[in-house]
């Protein structure tokens, strides 16, 4: 589904990603862990097409197509979804209107008929139950005045509505209380399928108890320095990034 080869990217002339290789197949869940500032969000944003990040080398193929050549909205309509580490507030923009617009843009792109207001509300209601979100958040402006946890949950609601093929969740677990974490993890698990793939960026092994990944990668200073199965997350938790990296260097 996604194949990243030797990807380099900079922001404001500073190189952040220094050659990333990653292959994600349909049905897989990949966890990406790594210290603060190592480039996890940068990778997520580059894949989503954030204009501030400049790709300086390498490529990313999504379903065989050149992902990096697509406009950000095209990537989204093609099924790439980014749950933001810091969701943006959109004062005055109604959450429901926003969600319906987003869904219908994708449907138009895929040649499907747009959903009427009624059909959309019915769908939305189901998705709300899935993520156990309060109705009151729907009538409000997107993320405006939402608590940190509510914003994260709103990201997952958007994911549930848009049903992306490739979802990149950037630290969706941070800022969530224990119950919310379980609910979010459950919703993500329900959205998991043979056709979809998920990339989870996280700092905490705890999330991976709920959403069990097929692969774990360690991103360190702009490079993936180690990859493994779900046990790698436990090892990281035990030993810390530095020693894992030292071992890796020694092994080479």
């Amino acid at each position: 589904m996604l194949e990243i080869k030797d990807l380099h990217a900079s922001v404001e002339e500073k190189e952040i990603l220094k050659g990333i290789d990653l292959k994600v197949n349909a049905g897989e869940v990949h966890a990406i862990m790594g210290p603060n500032g190592s480039g996890k969000s940068t990778l997520a944003n580059v894949l989503a097409g954030r204009p501030e990040y400049r790709v300086t080398g390498g490529e990313a193929l999504y379903e065989g197509k050149d992902l990096l050549a697509m406009a950000p909205e095209t990537r989204a309509r093609e099924g790439v979804f980014l749950a933001f580490q810091y969701p943006v507030e959109l004062p005055g923009v109604n959450n429901t209107t926003f969600l319906r617009t987003a869904l219908n843009e994708g449907r138009k792109y895929r040649g499907q008929p747009e959903l009427s207001a009624g059909a959309f509300l019915a769908l939305l209601k189901k998705k709300m139950q899935l993520v156990e979100m309060a109705d009151t958040l729907l009538s409000r402006a997107v993320n405006e005045g939402f608590s940190g946890g509510e914003k994260k949950r709103n990201e997952i609601l958007q994911m549930a509505v848009l049903e992306p093929r490739l979802a990149i969740l950037d630290e969706t677990d941070s800022g969530l209380d224990i119950d919310a974490l379980r609910i979010v993890a459950n919703s993500v698990n329900k959205l998991r399928s043979k056709e979809n793939a998920i990339i989870l960026v996280t700092h905490y092994q705890r999330l991976l108890n709920y959403i069990v990944p097929d692969f774990v990668h360690v991103l360190y200073n702009g490079k993936i320095v180690k990859s493994g199965g779900k046990e790698l997350a436990l090892e990281l938790e035990e030993k810390g990034y530095d020693s894992v990296r030292q071992e890796e260097i020694a092994a080479k």
Binding site: E73, R75, A76, V93, A102, Y109, L162
Partner: peptide, 19 residues
């Protein structure tokens, strides 16, 4: 943020301004 949800820049500006 709006682009990432499949909404073009023009429509994004409209949504924000209408709001």
């Amino acid at each position: 943020y709006l682009n990432q949800r499949g909404i073009s820049t023009e429509d994004a500006v409209r949504l924000i301004v209408n709001g």
